[in-house]
């Protein structure tokens, strides 16, 4: 007798485990995808820093980092190690909790926003349909806007909690700028939504199978891209962190890895914005006859847009703050509304 009940219990436990595993395949696949996307997007950041520094070097007729490793590949690694081992300074007048919370909010929202970005057509492995996106949310584009809107809090909180006038000004500027340009961003995306009749990003890509929307909506593309650059706080719209007037703005007081987290957030947002532009206007993973894998087509377009981001940074001087707001509200927004009106009229007719 004795051990019968133990084996019986183990059998039942085994059955239960197998049963729950087979029942929860979507959940497991989803978790794996979430981890893969999060890790991939975070490891893109050092590569992007390397790319930016190298390209900026070329644009400014110098070499850029080339000492650590071949082509300076080791430079981001060395920078990361340096940042990790720096002393983390929190000044005594700061609000400790918010001071620590702010960079976490920035990175978290940046990664979460990428969850709904599809980067390739679905395919089958072992009879299981693998879709190359974290989640196919029905109102995907709204989700991206919602989450990136939450990212503003990171900057505002950093500005507020630092107890420093420069930081406060930087935080306020960033929130004002991002609210203003979010309107342009949303309204220019709306013309694409009108064309496809869906908020779903996958549907949008499938609607561009024959023709990318940049050819149908060139103005909307331009407006979306400009607003996207402003939304990610990149030069020439990097007013919140203007070095000359604000001493780097909302992250003046941050050191070490917390400082680096703001940069991580910025670079991840850059990737997300490039991916959005690709999905909305450049036809996503459609390669239009060029024989390459869909995912390669998508990554190629994103990489090109990232290079354009860097190109803009090294070409244009920073815009004055009042000009920036005037530009956003008096030029971009009316143009957006006009474009929307024309698109809607044509669609109805």
């Amino acid at each position: 007798m004795g051990l019968d009940w133990v084996t019986e219990f183990l059998n039942e436990l085994w059955d239960f485990t197998v049963q729950s595993l087979t029942d929860n395949v979507p959940l497991i696949v989803g978790s794996v995808k979430a981890v893969v996307i999060a890790v991939a997007i975070m490891s893109v950041v050092p590569a992007l820093v390397w790319l930016e520094r190298r390209l900026m070097g070329r644009f400014q007729v110098r070499l850029g980092p080339n000492r650590v490793g071949p082509f300076g590949f080791g430079q981001p690694m060395a920078d990361t190690i340096k940042l990790l081992f720096k002393e983390s300074i929190v000044q005594s007048s700061a609000d400790k909790f918010l001071f620590h919370l702010a960079p976490a909010v920035v990175v978290f929202t940046a990664i979460v926003a990428f969850a709904v970005i599809p980067f390739g057509a679905p395919f089958e492995v072992f009879g299981q349909r693998i879709e190359l996106w974290g989640a196919n949310v029905n109102s995907g584009i709204l989700f991206v806007f919602a989450i990136s809107g939450m990212g503003i809090y990171g900057m505002v909180l950093a500005g507020l909690s630092s107890n420093n006038k420069y930081s406060l000004m930087g935080g306020l500027r960033s929130s004002a700028q991002m609210i203003s340009y979010e309107l342009t961003l949303g309204l220019s995306a709306l013309s694409v939504i009108i064309l496809t009749g869906s908020l779903n990003l996958v549907d949008m890509v499938e609607a561009q199978e024959t023709l990318p929307f940049i050819l149908i909506q060139p103005l909307a593309f331009l407006l979306f891209f400009i607003a996207g650059v402003a939304e990610t706080n990149r030069a020439p719209f990097d007013l919140p962190e203007a070095e000359q007037e604000l001493v780097a703005g909302f992250h003046t007081e941050y050191t070490g890895m917390k400082f680096a987290m703001f940069f991580m957030g910025e670079y991840i947002n850059m990737v997300t914005m490039s991916a959005l532009v690709t999905l909305l206007f450049l036809g996503g993973w459609n390669s239009y006859g060029v024989p390459i894998w869909p995912i390669v087509a998508f990554s190629g377009k994103v990489l090109f847009l990232l290079c354009v981001f860097i190109w803009l940074r090294s070409t244009f001087p920073r815009i004055r703050y009042d000009r920036l707001m005037t530009f956003g509200w008096k030029i971009l927004l009316p143009l957006c509304l006009l474009n929307l009106l024309i698109t809607g009229t044509i669609k109805v007719l």
Binding site: A146, G149, M150, I152, Y153, V156, L157, L160, L172, S175, A176, I179
Partner: peptide, 11 residues
Amino acid sequence: YAGAVMILFLF
């Protein structure tokens, strides 16, 4: 609410 309205509050 969480995005637009509350950012103005914080502002």
